[in-house]
Write a protein that binds this DNA or RNA. Structure first.
Lengths: 119, 119
DNA sequence: CTTACATTTCAACGATAGTTGAATTGATGG
DNA sequence: CCATCAATTCAACTATCGTTGAAATGTAAG
């Protein structure tokens, strides 16, 4: 992920409704949620949600697929992971103060450090 | 870090000049950089930089100290680390697709997973 | 083919964020 | 104390972002 894309991703997440959308989609898992369901959950007008969804999609943080007459949105895990890594690379370069706590936090996750088998 | 603070941090980083400032300060290390030096490096007017520095400071991403007639700014590693962890917690909850690549990337860092001794 | 539903596009408005130059505050040095 | 340098505050302006309602698009059901 280059700086330009990271910038777009940060800007996308720096908005209340868009951050809520991402959190809802991550929670929903790979099956995702229809635009209408998202609008209800986040509490914005559908026409407004479309605007935000386009922004998140352009930033590479969510993906969409048509299913019947609905459009299903889901989290783009690769994009989210890239963003975390951008932040780590930029902040860890010669400075472990950032990475070390993160590494420690990974233990609390169900993602054992170094184990990429179930990715 | 709560959602409100994370939102402010994302919004702060989602601006070209502010992202450059953070990168410059992380690169500079704990010694930091004077406001004037930052202005030169990032390429913005000093009066404009003050605006951005206040925003970054309010988001908990940078810190400042007065030194002689200069004000020295430095990266707030704890704040940056908290942000990474917020992103991981929200995105790793039940979904290892995000965490696993990050854990793998940590190996490339000089921060051995689980080792918090030099933090 | 017509109707109904889900979502997006469009144009317009109001609010917020970013930039600029002038004036101000705080810290040294003569 | 006065002149100078570094940084911030302030007020004004412009540009961009977020929101809204009306109209358009695409999809399925009768």
């Amino acid at each position: 992920m280059d700086e330009r894309q990271a910038l777009a991703a940060f800007a996308a997440l720096g908005q209340e409704h868009r951050l809520k959308v991402v959190r809802a989609l991550v929670t929903a898992g790979p099956d995702g949620l229809a635009a209408g369901a998202l609008a209800a959950e986040v509490g914005v007008a559908s026409t407004n949600l479309s605007f935000h969804l386009k922004e998140l999609s352009h930033a590479g943080l969510i993906a969409s697929r048509r299913e019947g007459r609905s459009v299903i949105y889901s989290a783009a895990y690769a994009g989210l992971s890239d963003l975390v890594q951008f932040l780590m690379r930029d902040c860890c370069g010669g400075r472990p103060e950032v990475c070390a706590p993160v590494a420690a936090a990974l233990s609390a996750c169900d993602c054992p450090p170094g184990d990429t088998a179930h990715a």
